[in-house]
Amino acid sequence: MEYRTDEEAVVAYKNGEKKALEELVIKYKSMLLGYIKAMVYNKADAEEIFQEVWVRLIKDPQKFKGGNLAAWLTRVAHNMMVDYMRKKKPDVALDGNEDEEDMPLIDRIADENADPLKDLMEKDSGERLKQIIMQLPQEQREVFLMRAEMGMSFKEIADAQKVSINTVLARMQYAVGKLRRMVNVALQ
């Protein structure tokens, strides 16, 4: 059975339709695990967190009060990863206040037809780009993944990271600037 929105599917699950939640798991499994693994690196740990996120929803679907389910799942995963990071590396926090570097200079690209991303993708089907993304600092990587992979708005990202929207936008700017530079370096 298809549901128009994720919210409807969760409501159906609350009313006993287990298939509804199964469909949501299938829908978000790759996105959610991709986000978690890009943050914790270890696939076994990532899968454990992945399961725990769903268990949270399975046990207490009332906790999801509607809206963007992807954002809700991401927030839950983020909080779990904060605990995970504390256990693994007590001196490194997922949402710590690391000093931001200087704002990147805007690259002036003369050729408007240039598409460095497309060129890079053609080289190795995205493997290099994936490595470049993984090199981003933690906060910037998380903002980037929440936006690119989980499709969250910047407001939702700010709520998840418990920072202001301006901080989130700045982190994204740094991330995009860094990725742009690294893509150009990779093409040389």
Binding site: S30, G34, I133
Partner: peptide, 18 residues
């Protein structure tokens, strides 16, 4: 243009199958 392509591309390549 770069940002739009980046978000679109990254969204696909970063996915991971459980």
């Amino acid at each position: 243009k770069f940002y739009g392509n980046l978000i679109h591309t990254a969204g696909k390549i970063m996915q991971e199958n459980p």
